[in-house]
């Protein structure tokens, strides 16, 4: 259910962003989703195919999903830590941090159009 509404959001967002004429030429969507985004790439692919089966408007668009690791940058020492087991702690100076630089994103990173 969750994945279905994510698919809806993607299309809704693209409709806001591009003219219909351009949307019709869209051939690929590249998503970047963080490990914290609760998006499971496999389920999202399934939801997409379920929503746009053969013969429907957006069926031929290729969905690419890249999943990114969680990283924080310490506000004090600037060190970048890859977060393991959801411990949001600078590995260098042991300070807790919520300064996420990666891992939370749910981005439509890139789209391709074909004439």
């Amino acid at each position: 259910m969750h994945e279905t509404s994510i698919v809806n959001s993607i299309i809704k967002t693209l409709e806001l962003e591009f003219e219909e004429e351009k949307l019709d030429k869209m051939s690929a969507i590249y998503l970047k989703v963080g490990k914290l985004s609760n998006i499971e790439p496999r389920l999202l692919h399934n939801a997409y195919t379920a929503k746009y089966p053969c013969g429907t408007k957006f069926h031929s668009i290729k969905l690419h999903i890249e999943s990114t690791e969680i990283q924080i940058q310490c506000e004090v020492c600037n060190h970048i830590t890859s977060v393991i087991n959801y411990r949001f702690l600078c590995e260098k100076c042991d300070r807790p941090s919520k300064n996420l630089i990666q891992g939370e994103e749910m981005l439509i990173h890139k789209v391709e159009f074909e004439d």
Binding site: E17, L107, K110, E112, E114
Partner: peptide, 21 residues
């Protein structure tokens, strides 16, 4: 045969429609 491929870097939040509201 398929014509040219154009690529556009968007980097838009896929929940942008939600966040706008």
């Amino acid at each position: 045969a398929r014509g040219s491929v154009q690529c556009e870097n968007t980097n838009i939040n896929l929940l942008k429609a939600n966040d706008y509201v």
